[in-house]
Design a protein around this nucleic acid. Structure first.
Lengths: 344, 344
DNA sequence: TTGAAAGCGCTAACAA
DNA sequence: TTGTTAGCGCTTTCAA
């Protein structure tokens, strides 16, 4: 076992390759970055030399000279969150086999922290940037306006992206889910929310809107917390809700974790789902879909958003201005299942 | 909305700060990296200048000059996996407020891909490297031996880490879980496994060991797949198992996702858990803990492993050779719950 | 199509 | 404790 001897090992450089190939360093650089600008003869010599020496470019030197790195920054509010786990997966799948890297920054739902991360990330001269939503600080917004790279704001929709945006309408999604509960014949609708970020807030507003319009809004049936979301939190919030308003007959949960918590707690209390209690989640994660009973949820294209966001960035890098639709609404889909299939 | 104009913006440099503070560039560099080597007077002047100009160092220039970047590489076999999500979280929490970045590489359970990622990562002159397990290719192992930075192999234990290691004994963990099932009076033990990576294999071996010793091994009650793990997969594997050996009375699942799938499928089939069927999961994730009935599982310190691994790296960076215990076994804990609490 | 020269912003090594 | 000098490995610019 080695101990504390981490000396840098020398790797071949551009000049080494150039010497080996009998050309100049810049010709090697060109064969790597734009082979079409190099004669076939040179190209072959260089390629042979690269192979022989096992050369690979030094990204730091390249970034310093060109003022652009191969790093794409991805700023997320949370790493615990299932939602962002899927986004991250999409982004990574999209980046694979390209010359780019992804660097994740976790700003823990703090706009100020996001701003500072942004500052640090920008120092790296990123090739692209992916942000969550539109709720940056003024200072962050200013930095974004001058960002020297393509950037995509994801998850939400809004009128004015700093550069590009892709997401869906959270308020409308909640409206749709709430209408579904009413249509199923539920009349005493409750709402459970944890970690009330801007998008959760929008869902909450959507729920209130529809309830109000239907004359069925009772604020006492709304329980939220700023703490992180989890299955246990779902149970706790449900308990709190029951303590306040035991007559609640359907619950819209801000996400599926909460919904699972409500379902399992209902089972413990022998509350029949969906007859005594309807449950609707949000996001449609695999587990919720497989519960017994299966949980109704709003399917959101999280993976797809990540995948598409990174593609937008890659396209813009390849050809600035080439992304035509710079403000995409990818929609959502209500998936009715057993947990709201009340027998009327 | 801007379109395709991503020109680099000039940021203040070290010399700008130096000029502002009335000192030399190297003094600024020193106040940032080792303030104790600078007089208080200089330090205050420099700090004021940094604040005034909003200076932040250019990591590329720094990496080029010092031959070490501030990037710490984290190579994981999967991003879908709950286990690695927790590890990643631990790593990110540990890196916060330091000057380092984490760059994740997803090698999709392919040792060859891991090797290629390693090669690419090493070109970045990483400040540290975190790898999963001990199953690197020969070529990768060779690269690791010469790695110019601290590295930690995580999740597993083994006799010979390349540099440092932290994990637990998967085989022993499975042994403990299997013994528990026998102690609870179950006699027809089955095993369900998805995505059989080396650590899953070890758990599988542990299960077989104990069953064999107890004279209760029946290979027909083992169903595994190379496909990814999920709740739906748990249901599928359970169905396959029941089709082969309907008399199975307890199942050790390779992870909690599978266990949840088994539980919900059992509920659909009206199989009573724990009386007709005992279920034991692996990892002890929040959801499994909150199912009805609550699922017995083997708690594994995933977050902690990530947190500690990054700390080992930071310690080694700060003071090479300072990490005393370079091969840590962090253990596991069986958490018996309702899903195996058979009434005898 | 190719190359020479200059320099990106920082740090290592040495000197004062 | 502070500064000077040189150069990390690449790309940009300009010229041939």
């Amino acid at each position: 076992m080695k101990k504390g001897s981490y000396s840098p090992t020398a790797s071949p450089t551009l000049s080494d390759v150039a010497r080996e190939a009998g050309v100049s360093a810049i010709t090697v650089s060109r064969t790597i970055r734009s082979p079409e600008k190099v004669s076939k003869a040179s190209r072959l010599k260089v390629e042979a030399a690269i192979a022989k020496l096992g050369y690979a470019p030094d990204p730091a030197a390249s970034a310093l000279a060109s003022k652009t790195s191969t790093t794409i920054g991805l700023l997320v509010p949370s790493l615990t969150n299932n939602v962002f786990a899927d986004v991250v997966r999409g982004v990574y799948d999209g980046i694979e086999e390209t010359r780019f890297f992804v660097q994740i920054g976790n700003f823990r739902y703090s706009a100020l922290k996001e701003q500072e991360l942004l500052r640090v990330f920008l120092r790296q001269k990123p090739a692209g940037l992916i942000l969550s939503g539109f709720d940056q600080t003024q200072e962050a917004t200013r930095m974004l306006k001058n960002a020297p790279c393509p950037l995509v704001q994801i998850m939400d929709i809004g009128p004015q992206p700093a550069d590009m945006a892709i997401g869906f309408d959270h308020k409308e999604a909640a409206r749709t889910a709430t209408r579904h509960l009413l249509e199923q014949g539920y009349t005493k609708l409750g709402f459970l929310g944890a970690r009330m970020d801007p998008r959760s807030q929008a869902r909450y507003e959507g729920f209130k809107d529809v309830c109000k319009d239907a004359g069925k809004l009772d604020e006492k049936r709304i329980v939220t917390t700023l703490q992180p979301s989890s299955v246990s939190m779902g149970r706790q919030l449900f308990e709190a809700l029951l303590a306040k308003t035991p007559d609640v007959d359907a619950i819209l949960c801000n996400n599926d974790d909460l919904a699972i918590g409500v379902l399992t707690e209902a089972q413990r209390r022998n509350i029949q789902v969906p007859d005594d209690l309807g449950i609707c989640g949000f996001n449609d994660i695999d587990i919720a879909r497989n519960m017994m009973p299966e949980i109704t949820s709003v399917a959101t294209p999280r993976y797809d958003i990540g995948r598409r966001a990174i593609q937008m960035i890659l396209d813009e890098i390849a050809e600035p201005g080439s992304v035509a639709d710079r403000n995409q609404d990818v929609g959502f889909e209500l998936v009715p299942r057993q947990s709201t299939a009340r027998r009327r």
